[in-house]
Amino acid sequence: MADKSFFIDTTKCTACRGCQVACKQWNKLPATKTYNWGSFQNPADLSFSTFKLVRFREVESGGKVKWYFFPDQCRHCLEPPCKDTAEGFVDGAVIQDESTGAVIYTDKTRMLSSSNFEEVRQSCPYNIPRQDPGTGLISKCTMCFDRVGNGLLPACVKACPTGTMKFGDRGEILDMAKKRVAALQKKGFKKAQLLDADSIRAIFLVVDDPSIYYKFSVAQNDVGISRKLALRKLFRPATGLITGVAKL
């Protein structure tokens, strides 16, 4: 199986949240108790039981209202800092599936202390990992690698009615994404761009300044590889991709 990637074209997203609910259904994640907090965005944030969340942001520029939707999820970095950080504490807590490139959090994440978890979270440039305060397990999007390994699309992609969510071989996905950017630029969307396409496997397309959509839409400089982590990396052999990840 080839290296996989998502293409998430926010210009097509209508925030129906089919992806968000399909993710919960496939991954058997419980609903959390929510309240309307003056926004359509609910739950308000990702959590241990919410891997996929459509973020809503309304802004006004030049007298025109914009309502941007950002179906947030793990980017499945080509070189995931969270994996490096976690491995500093527990070997095998975070693994990467060689065939798809999916970054997977295993049962061993429960062996990470809460301060270990904080480091893992802080090392993520996209603020993705969440910990279950009860069990200590850390979780996030799995790329539905159990589905993908069986020839199915990730649940979020399968559920998407508008063609916002696409998934496939990385080369084809990058090609598709670049063509779409070109088409949108031709249509007048000067700021049409892919976010961090070279370093991640969940490639978002936006048509405005990325930070308007969401603070962590692009990798944040103040997170990622911390000084502590950089030092630790220096004193141990590089692990790279592990092979032969067991299928769930």
Partner: peptide, 25 residues
């Protein structure tokens, strides 16, 4: 709303949908 169906008789009992639109606004 997208998240509920008609008066919500079929959707207000569904925790995943209720999670996305929990209260009248």
């Amino acid at each position: 709303v997208t998240e509920h169906w008609q008066t919500g008789v079929m959707t207000r009992w569904q925790p995943w949908l209720l999670e996305t639109q929990p209260q009248s606004f």
